[in-house]
Amino acid sequence: MPDVQTLGEFEQIVLLAILRLGENAYGVTIREEIIARTEREPSPGALYVTLDRLEEKGLVRSQFGDPTPQRGGRAKRFFSVSAKGVESVARAQRSYQRLMKGLKLPGVAHA
């Protein structure tokens, strides 16, 4: 059995947002991406706690950029998804797809 972490729903959303953003994934853009794609507005606290937890699990990595004057000389903390993180989110998504396959939800249009 490979070392793949079980993910909660919000953890998957954060991982997918980071993957979508590529090299420009930091707190502000991750939150904006989540709002734009899911129409849910996570609190900053929930987002940073989740990012820290994902980093401790080894699913994301973070590094500090250069300080910028727009942020009062404060650096951005950029995030990237590790190979383990990619595998974990892919596995979770496959599970969802297997569960959904052949299932017709009443009132929901299927692609």
């Binding site: 910028t68 942020r71 404060r74 650096a75």
Partner: peptide
């Protein structure tokens, strides 16, 4: 970094 994000 978090304060920078919140300022932004």
């Amino acid at each position: 970094a978090t304060v920078g994000d919140l300022m932004e």
